[in-house]
């Protein structure tokens, strides 16, 4: 355990540690202060982190080949190389060449700058297509916010790092920054598109990027500012009475830990149930619950499938906005999308 903690002082510690174990039954008096000293040294000057390519047996060609194989994808070697080449790396290379006195050859179209917007477009189109297909009742505002989350720097860099691309990227920054990982992920998607086609790319996006929402509550990604007013708008669209709030239950009303439960009723039928520390908050939560049930994203309704194979060439129509949302129009839209996919 000790050796793992202090790799730079391995030999020193091994000698002392083994010595003390051999001669005595217990640890030597010097052992505790020594460990303290070593720990102090490590805090002052932590061991440097080296890039994997500084190791002896690093073989970039083999790593590139196995990267695609690991993911189960067929990459064109040249395109993959280009997708992993950042402009910052080329600039650094040019400067070094100039310093040595070598004539600089033009390096256009060798880096991944031109691939990034194209990859982003493919990613965005398919993400929207898939989300609109699996959540046909969810308003367009919500779909857009889920898409924004999936295409954010945080998510894409997380995925890119964990598929093992960070060591293969040729860039100046080390450890690789999130923005670099983010842009490389988009370039990789374009490279895959050019190598294996759109269908294969869409499956890749589905498996690696869309699955990131599996552990999230998608309702948290889209914050409805005023759920009560939103629910009223929808009721007006549906041409039914406005929901009537009623206190369904409460406990400890006179304490600071008071709880109220409010139910929303239309024609004596419960449409939403919420709880909270005050009647106002419980009412808001009940409206929020009713909206979740309408949009098909309540806890008991939500079971997102990640194994659908959709035709990525279809151009998806945006879902209904909150202001136009009503049951009749949603059903029409679902019929349309079903007929398109067949």
């Amino acid at each position: 355990m000790l050796l793992i903690v202090l790799p730079n002082l391995q030999e020193e510690v091994v000698a002392l540690y083994s010595c003390s174990r051999k001669k005595y039954r217990e640890y030597h008096r010097f052992f505790s202060p020594l460990l303290k000293q070593l720990k102090r040294r490590q805090i002052i000057a932590p061991p440097p982190i080296n890039h994997r390519n500084t190791y002896l047996e690093w073989n970039y060609e083999a790593e590139l080949y196995s990267f695609g194989k690991r993911l189960g994808e067929e990459f064109d070697n040249e395109l993959l190389r280009q997708a992993l080449m950042q402009r910052s790396y080329l600039k650094k290379l040019e400067e070094e060449q100039k310093r040595v006195g070598i004539e600089v050859s033009s390096n256009e179209n060798v880096d991944n700058v031109c691939m990034i917007p194209k990859g982003e477009e493919i990613l965005q189109n398919f993400t929207l297509l898939y989300l609109r297909h699996i959540l046909p009742r969810f308003p367009e505002e919500g779909i857009q916010s889920i898409k924004d989350h999936l295409m954010s720097e945080e998510t894409l860099s997380h995925v890119c790092f964990h598929i093992g691309a960070s060591e293969l990227i040729l860039c100046e920054d080390f450890p690789v920054e999130k923005s670099t990982l983010n842009s490389t992920m988009k370039a990789l998607i374009f490279a895959l598109h050019e190598s294996s086609g759109l269908e294969r790319t869409s499956v890749f996006i589905r498996d690696f990027i869309l699955t990131q929402i599996a552990e999230l509550d998608i309702n948290d990604l889209w914050n409805i500012e005023n759920p009560i007013e939103t629910l009223n708008t929808i009721c007006r669209n549906e041409d039914v009475d406005l929901p009537e709030p009623r206190i369904v239950g409460d406990s400890g009303v006179n304490t600071i830990l008071a709880l109220y439960r409010v139910g929303l009723y239309i024609n004596k039928k419960l449409i939403g149930l919420g709880s909270g520390e005050s009647i106002k908050i419980a009412h808001e939560m009940a409206a929020s619950d009713a909206l979740r049930r309408l949009f098909g994203t309540a806890e008991h309704q939500l079971n997102i499938p990640f194994n659908l194979v959709l035709n990525p060439k279809i151009k998806s129509e945006p879902n209904l906005g909150v202001k136009d949302w009503c049951e009749k129009r949603v059903q029409e839209r679902i019929k349309q999308t079903l007929s398109l996919n067949e």
Partner: peptide
């Protein structure tokens, strides 16, 4: 923590008076 998750927790751990 979203408002929804907070109220869910509040509802679960509320002290009932018997």
């Amino acid at each position: 923590m979203s408002a929804w998750a907070r109220t869910k927790q509040w509802n679960t751990f509320t002290r009932i008076w018997h």
